[in-house]
Computed example of a mutant assay.
Amino acid sequence: MSPVSAIPAADSAVALAHFSTLLSFETDCADVHAALEERADPVSVDFVLLDVRSPALFARGHVPGAVNLLHGKIVASKLVEYPANTLFVTYCAGPHCNGATRAAIKLAQLGRPVKVMIGGITGWLDEGFQLAIASEA
């Protein structure tokens, strides 16, 4: 018996429920990229892409159309410009960073719909997608 099969797989019905539910919590870089590519204006997509890394990292490169807001700064007053049903998609540096999850928790606590973009910037670059660079002010 291998380490893979040592723990039996879940029943198919349980697996279906689990994996279907998983997609209600997360999206991936390819799906975000496709959504952004479908729209000429990144602001017109049906979600707000939230980069929760530091402003310095954001300035060095971020997903086009993303808004920079540290997870520690997510409060109701910062979200007033967005309708209550706005879907937020959070991301951070990558799989080694839990900032996107922390941001998702804060958004959920505020009653906001939220998903995490798995992979973060690392995943975005691994897919071969380009970053936007913040213009010098």
Rank of each mutant, 00 (worst) to 15 (best):
M1G: 05
V4N: 13
V4I: 05
A6P: 10
A10K: 09
D11Y: 04
S12D: 09
V14E: 10
A15G: 04
A15R: 12
A17I: 04
A17M: 04
T21Y: 03
L22H: 07
L23G: 05
T27Q: 05
D28V: 01
C29S: 13
C29D: 12
C29L: 02
A30Y: 09
A30G: 04
D31W: 11
L36M: 12
E37F: 00
E38W: 15
R39M: 06
A40H: 11
D41Q: 13
V43T: 10
V43F: 13
V45C: 01
D46K: 05
F47T: 08
L49P: 08
L49M: 07
D51H: 09
V52Y: 07
R53E: 11
S54E: 03
S54M: 04
P55E: 10
A56S: 07
A56P: 02
F58K: 12
R60K: 13
G61A: 10
G61I: 10
H62V: 09
H62R: 05
V63Y: 02
V63K: 05
V63S: 11
P64V: 08
G65P: 08
A66Y: 03
A66D: 05
V67Y: 00
V67I: 06
N68R: 12
N68I: 01
L69T: 00
H71D: 11
G72V: 02
G72L: 00
G72C: 00
G72S: 00
K73Q: 07
I74P: 08
V75N: 09
V75S: 11
A76N: 03
K78S: 13
K78I: 07
K78T: 15
L79S: 12
Y82G: 07
P83T: 13
P83G: 04
A84T: 13
N85K: 01
L87H: 09
T90Q: 05
T90R: 11
Y91I: 01
C92A: 13
A93C: 02
A93G: 05
G94N: 05
G94D: 12
G94Y: 07
P95H: 05
N98E: 15
G99W: 03
G99M: 08
R102T: 02
I105L: 15
Q109K: 15
L110T: 04
R112Y: 10
R112G: 02
V114D: 08
K115Q: 09
K115M: 03
K115P: 04
V116R: 12
M117E: 05
G120C: 04
T122M: 10
G123I: 06
G123C: 13
G123F: 06
G123D: 14
W124P: 08
L125N: 07
D126V: 00
E127L: 01
G128R: 11
F129C: 00
Q130K: 14
A132Q: 14
E136C: 11
E136G: 06
E136I: 00
